[in-house]
């Protein structure tokens, strides 16, 4: 006799997903097309593309562009740092040091996000640690935001890349060397293609987390505006416009996920 599939178990999570998650998302989308009465600051329901028109011009187009640039830079830096680190951890150091390496990567994740962001603020300030040890500080702004976000999201890149290295059979590296491939040829032709999905999986984290961040940006960004801080700023006075900004980041992320799905990254999350 065939057993009944226990759909009942799904009821609670399904309810949560539909009401809390999709419901909230749907209300953001809907609100993005509302307007705000400029005298009373009251939200007026309706259908208007004014918010998106305003978004496409001037200041806000610049903010969208800058946000994308920062998210891309952070992602590239994370890849550049994570690949060698994960390689050494998975392939070079003796097995008993691997857990130490993993702990070093994971420990910062347990510290409060705010504490870490303020730590960077302290380090970046004039007369701060950076200036005293390295002789200079980029100050608050674009560079500070990229540095801080790279620091914050790096573990999310290292972990999937490390797992990718672990999955790569030793015999594939040996086969490449055996066929005459130098270390560089092996890295480029065998290791990188094999790691592709893992790296793509990591970029889903670093890119989306950077895209939506507003706290670190407001702590170390100085006057720098990103999508997240713009949402925060418009939240009170112009909720529909803030919703439109939120919609933009959701759309960017959906496009990014669809692109990454084609690399097989989503099976590696």
């Amino acid at each position: 006799m065939k057993r009944k599939t226990p759909y009942g178990l799904l009821a609670a999570p399904l309810l949560w997903l539909v009401v809390a998650y999709l419901g909230a998302l749907a209300s953001i989308f809907a609100t993005a097309f509302f307007t705000t009465d400029s005298f009373t600051n009251e939200v007026v329901p309706g259908f208007s593309l004014d918010n998106f028109r305003a978004l496409a011009t001037g200041t806000y187009a610049g903010i969208v562009g800058r946000t994308l640039l920062i998210a891309a830079l952070v992602t590239v830096l994370c890849v550049g740092l994570a690949v060698p680190f994960a390689f050494v951890m998975a392939r070079v150091v003796p097995a008993r040091w691997r857990s130490v390496g993993l702990a070093l990567v994971l420990v910062p994740l347990w510290a409060s996000y705010l504490v870490k962001a303020y730590a960077w603020r302290a380090m970046l300030q004039p007369e701060g640690v950076l200036e005293r040890t390295l002789g200079g500080t980029p100050g608050y702004g674009f560079v500070a935001v990229v540095l801080t976000l790279t620091y914050l999201w790096l573990p999310y890149m290292i972990l999937p890349v490390y797992a990718g290295f672990e999955r790569l059979p030793e015999s594939h590296l040996e086969a490449s060397a055996d066929l005459g491939g130098s270390d560089w040829a092996t890295f480029r032709r065998v290791v990188l293609p094999a790691l592709g999905p893992s790296i793509a999986a990591g970029t889903v984290f670093t890119f989306s987390l950077s895209l939506g961040d507003y706290i670190a940006v407001s702590i170390v960004g100085g006057k720098l505006q990103m999508l997240g801080t713009a949402v925060l700023q418009n939240n009170v006075l112009d909720l529909p416009f803030a919703a439109a900004l939120g919609t933009v980041s959701v759309v960017i992320m959906v496009i990014y996920l669809v692109a990454m799905r084609r690399t097989g990254a989503l099976e590696n999350l």
């Binding site: 086969a175 055996d178 066929l179 005459g180 130098s182 094999a194």
Partner: peptide, 29 residues
């Protein structure tokens, strides 16, 4: 090092590169 020796190996698990076609695997060396 292995890549400087004029020997080639057929591995027990074959160690074919999964991301390359059969022909690209054979061309690799």
């Amino acid at each position: 090092p292995p890549h400087r020796r004029d020997v080639n190996t057929v591995f027990q698990d074959y160690a074919l590169f999964p991301h390359l076609s059969v022909r690209d695997n054979v061309e690799y060396g």
